[in-house]
Design a protein around this nucleic acid. Structure first.
Lengths: 149, 149
DNA sequence: TTACTATAGTTCTAGTTAGAACTAAATTGC
DNA sequence: GCAATTTAGTTCTAACTAGAACTATAGTAA
């Protein structure tokens, strides 16, 4: 078992994610949103809205955190909460018209900002890296599940 | 420019990191440390100590955050602050003897816990994934630097 | 030397984070 | 149709997070 070889992998995973965060969040902050707020706006854009549960699954924000993030976006009039007609426990979070305008303005800017990172990569590179990441995620999820039951 | 292809990569990067965090931090918390505290203890183990600046560079924790993390570890008598003899601005953070015992006990446990994730991976797999991550990090850092000056 | 500049850490603020306890509404089982 | 369980969201707590402003010390340059 070459134990020495997976510790550098974990360090690189943390470093790569950290570098992504630094690069991405500096831009998002320059647009007057926090990274979590941007994720919510980006996820709600071009949709009829969705429940906090679904939003949390897509953005990987846990429900306790999500309440606060939505509170702050609602205070800025970027989203609003609508009661679900079907289920009294559910809400639907929607962009307001102001939120839609914000999304239309900043989402393309941020995509362009991120695209610059990959200027030197071929499609094959990108697919290879994506496959590596998928493999990693799958391994962590499988390992986590196997500790639970 | 196939713009569609790097967005899935970014999603996979976030998901993979998130899956790592969930798996790793559940274990760390069961050892009565937070992930940030564990990183500090793991970094200080088997060293004569180091300055907060160096600790922050190794653990990717920014200096403002680090003050609080070290405060809490010091309150638990796991580390202590020693004034640097050379530089009046510097400190040296060291594990206490209690901290060294803690490190000796939990670090191997955590390494073993993480090793399980990679049971199904060949050394070649691990090296390939590590290389992908290194490529990613480099690209983000380069892009970030090019926005600064 | 004396002013200027850079560096190390702390403090402060606003926000995110996870996890656990809680409330209310729905679903299931009997 | 009622009790037991599950699910959706909120609230609470402790901690982390980045970034900016601040203090103190060190290095540099005239």
């Amino acid at each position: 078992m070459p134990r020495s070889i997976f510790l550098p992998l974990l360090r690189e995973l943390s470093s790569a994610y950290q570098a992504f965060e630094v690069y991405s969040s500096a831009h998002v902050r320059s647009l007057s949103l926090t990274p979590a707020q941007f994720d919510i706006v980006a996820t709600l854009g071009n949709t009829p809205g969705m429940s906090p549960k679904e939003l949390g699954e897509k953005t990987l924000i846990t429900k306790g955190t999500l309440t606060g993030v939505i509170d702050r976006l609602a205070a800025k009039k970027i989203v609003r909460r609508v009661a679900s007609p079907d289920d009294g426990r559910c809400q639907i979070i929607r962009l307001t018209s102001q939120g839609e305008k914000l999304f239309a303005r900043i989402f393309p800017l941020h995509v362009a900002h991120m695209e610059r990172v990959f200027a030197g990569f071929s499609p094959g590179d990108l697919e290879g890296i994506t496959a590596s990441l998928r493999l990693l995620r799958t391994a962590f999820v499988a390992a986590h599940v196997s500790t639970k039951p």
